[in-house]
Each structure stands twice: as C-alpha cells, then as structure tokens.
Write a protein that binds this DNA or RNA. Structure first.
Length: 279
DNA sequence: CCCCAGGTCGTCA
DNA sequence: TGACGACATGGG
C-alpha cells in the first residue's frame, strides 16, 4: 500500500526515542510493532510504502499512528513566534511527528525508561512481549505484540525482573496493581485536565513527573506536557543560559514560554540535541 | 573501575 | 521543602 505523506520524516520520527519497537532494515525500511499488528514502512520521497501482516483498516491505522492528518504548520507557527531559537529548530523539525501510540504500552514502557538507555529499554520491552504478548508470524519471522494488561498481570515479579528491568520490576507491579483495582484507570485519564492527569499518574509508586509527562505526551497526545530529562536540561542551559538548569525552573520556563505546545517544543529540543551528538 | 542512561524513592537535615 | 545516595544492568 502506498500513502501520500509529503510532510513526513520517517527516519527521524522513528529513531527519536519516542517509540521502542522499531527495527531499521537493511533496505532502509522500518519494521514497527504496533498494538495489533506488525508493519513495514519505507519512505519513497513523498510516499510511504506500507506492508503488514494484517490488512484490516490498515490505511486508517497507519494514518493515525503517524499522525498524518494533523497540520503541523499550526504548531510550527505557534512555536516560531516564541523566539528565534524555537523558530530555527521547529522549522528544522517540521516533518518530525508525534506518534499516536498505545497508552498502556507507553504506561509500562516509560516506567522502564527511567535512568535507562534506549537500547536497554527496547530490549526489556521485547523480552516482556515475548514472554506475555501475542505471537505473530510474518514473512517467516516471529514478532510479539505488546502484552495486554491481563497477560502482563499473570507474570511474577521474578519473570518481570528476568527481562532486565532491574529495580523497576516493583514499579511495573505497582502500575499493574493500579489497573487491577481500577481497570478503567487509563481511560479515565482522558477526561482529566493535564494537571490532574499528572497527579493521578504520579500517585503510582515508580512514576514521577518525567515519566508521567512522557505517558501523557506519547500515550495520550497531550502536547502541553514537557518531559524534562538530561538532554533537555543540556539543551536549555546551552540555549537559554539565564535559566537555572534544574527541573523545576525549566518546567516553569517551558510552561510560560511554549504554552500549549510546550511538549512539542521540548521534544524538538530533545531530538535536535540528540541528533547533533550522533552526527 | 568509573560513568552514564529520556528518574524516582527514601532518608536525613 | 531540599539535597543526596541508592537502585539493576549493560555499554563505553
């Protein structure tokens, strides 16, 4: 299947660290494990070539996942008005998308992400999926979907520990406990404003402000939260030396300066700062 | 062997 | 409140 997507930078979007279940293939395409299927995507100029093990609603699923129907010009224009630096990076990142990923997967994945690196995070998620997720065979290869809450709950803490998540095992358990006692917990988040949603998430042991923000940004598409991590702190102190480089100050700064799209601004910075390093 | 990784918790002042 | 070490684990 071929989809017109002229404002899409597939590679930087997928390798930006917002999703963990991505493989770059030798032909330059990417294999992505979504919540209900496996897809392979290849960028061909203004088009995305898609194959999948599952054809049901494939077009709709892909458009949604890559956020292709959103006009990013509104975001770019909004941020460009804030200052010159934002103008520069938001224009450079204009084809970089925020993926619409599964909230439960983000809930667990970003708990694993704390004080961890992307490679190890991906590894643990892969092992968890292998242990409790639905198996898919496609093109003679095995893939495993991210587990459902019910199936993840069946694992013991030792099982979870064996995926390499280390001390985060008990945090995953406490997150699952929360869903066990209120199976609509993750759905209820939709109806809350950002401040209350953050509070709810942070009430779970093992979820702090950063992880809660990532869950809201990547699992709920809340663009007004700002996950502040080591990369962002580096970036802010470099480009806004007058701001003291502590989380609380940066948060205040981001809220005031970047407003309703501050999450996007921070994500651009994260992306930009990391890419500079890898060049 | 030390440092770091898309942090958070518990403790001590 | 605020600072600070501990926490699992693998790679540089």
């Amino acid at each position: 299947m071929k989809i017109f997507a002229n404002k899409m930078d597939l590679k930087s979007t997928l390798l930006s660290g917002q999703c963990f279940r991505i493989t770059e293939e030798e032909n330059g395409s990417f294999t992505c494990i979504l919540s209900d299927r496996v897809i392979n995507v290849k960028q061909d100029d203004d088009y995305l070539e898609i194959t999948s093990n599952k054809q049901d609603n494939l077009l709709e699923v892909v458009i949604n996942y890559f956020d292709l129907e959103t006009d990013y010009n509104e975001y770019i224009n909004y941020l460009s008005e804030k200052d010159n630096y934002l103008k520069e990076i938001s224009n450079k990142c204009s084809d970089y998308k925020i993926l619409r990923q599964d909230k439960f997967e983000m809930f667990i994945s970003y708990i694993i992400s704390q004080n961890n690196n992307v490679k190890r995070i991906s590894n643990s998620i892969e092992k968890l999926s292998k242990m409790a997720g639905e198996k898919i065979i496609w093109n003679n290869k095995e893939y495993y979907l991210f587990p459902t809450p019910e199936n993840l709950m069946k694992l013991s803490i030792e099982d979870i520990r064996s995926t390499g998540v280390g001390f985060r095992d008990k945090y995953i358990i406490s997150a699952l406990e929360k869903i066990k006692e209120d199976n609509l917990f993750l759905d209820k988040i939709y109806s809350l404003n950002t401040e209350d949603a953050l509070k709810e998430l942070i009430s779970i042991k093992g979820i702090g402000l950063k992880v809660a923000s990532c869950i809201l940004l990547f699992g709920y598409y809340r663009l007004d939260v700002f996950p502040i991590d080591t990369w962002v702190i580096k970036n802010i102190s470099l480009n806004y030396p007058e701001i003291s480089p502590i989380q609380k100050e940066i948060e205040k700064f981001a809220r005031n300066k970047f407003g309703k799209y501050s999450g996007l601004a921070i994500q651009y910075m994260f992306h930009y700062e990391r890419n500079k390093k890898s060049e």
